[in-house]
Write a protein that binds this DNA or RNA. Structure first.
Lengths: 189, 189
DNA sequence: CCTACCGATCGGTAGG
DNA sequence: CCTACCGATCGGTAGG
């Protein structure tokens, strides 16, 4: 089956690119690096992607989609505001810090590498995700679980969680789930 | 005075580089970009710096030093744990989000662009700064102002503040000082 | 998907 | 600090 073979190769390239973009950054990663990581010649990469930027977009879309799906799954069936808040915090950190999950990190830290014209679809996905956060936090504030302006609390919370990428080590004492609970412990009333 | 003229030129280059590194990233900024920003030929830049990396180090050291000094000045004379916590939060956000202050942002967001061998002095400065934070937060926890493990609270707090770079707009409704207070309002008991 | 290659640009240097 | 330049490497393409 040629189609699925080609799809497989394309996915391998996207995953290899995510890892390299995370490690060295987008600008410092060459198309030769990416091709070599999956055993291709550099020219062959352009059979799968029109240009380097298209690879970045694919990586970021994977990350955003994965994260949104994890959040939706975690919230599914929950109605208590406090439980929903906890589930969302956990899901976010788990998708961000889990294994082989560089794509979301690339989305977060390579915004400036993507020209504004190329952000269309991504902005939409991101807005939807932030809407989910806004709702969950807003409900938590209304229920008296946390204190503050929901928009500001949302930004600070996502910031604190997203920044864990800078210091979190898998061999440390706390799991992503533990960390989410620790943060909740600090901000809940 | 030739020495101070040369110092001036060097400082102008560092400031221009900080702005460009912030805007486009270190790898995507060329030495020609930096030279052009202060009206030099690209070759002349290497009269002031041995190589591109040395410029990055200079930018980051400026940022770290500025931030440490602002924190020390803000804490000077304060002894109440709650007041010290507030002063530290405000000082950090004000130096991070103020005008023409790209150097600290570059320090925070370009870590991976600097080879480990070149980090020596920077790591020392950063450790000292984090020690200040650790102490202030630890005292605040002991005084019952915030809740949680001091190391984790420190990391989450700095993360939340550092991430404001991603979304803060100067023409928005909140000043850096307001933002610091908002965050404190959410995490203090 | 490979081979062979391109024009452009990169960080950096020599010599004044 | 400029001029003139270098070797290396970059993203991307044509032709099979």
């Amino acid at each position: 089956m040629t189609i699925s073979d080609s799809e497989n190769r394309r996915n391998k390239l996207i995953r290899a690119a995510a890892s390299l973009f995370h490690e060295k950054g987008y600008a410092a990663t060459t198309v030769r690096d990416i091709a070599r990581a999956v055993g291709l010649q550099s020219g062959s990469l352009f059979y799968h992607f029109r240009n380097k930027e298209e690879i970045l977009v694919a990586v970021m879309q994977n990350g955003m989609r994965r994260t949104s799906e994890a959040a939706a799954a975690a919230l599914d069936g929950l109605s208590d505001p406090s439980e929903r808040l906890r589930a969302l915090f956990r899901a976010h950190l788990e998708t961000l810090l889990g294994d082989l999950q560089d794509d979301m990190i690339v989305l977060l830290y390579e915004q400036r590498s993507l020209p504004i014209e190329a952000r269309g679809e991504l902005v939409k996905l991101r807005d939807e995700y932030e809407q989910v956060w806004q709702q969950v936090i807003s409900d938590a504030v209304d229920a008296g679980v946390v204190r503050g302006d929901p928009g500001v609390v949302r930004r600070f919370s996502l910031g604190a969680l997203n920044w864990t990428v800078q210091w979190y080590r898998k061999d440390g004492p706390l799991s992503p789930t533990d960390l989410a609970d620790e943060f909740l412990n600090t901000i809940t009333i």
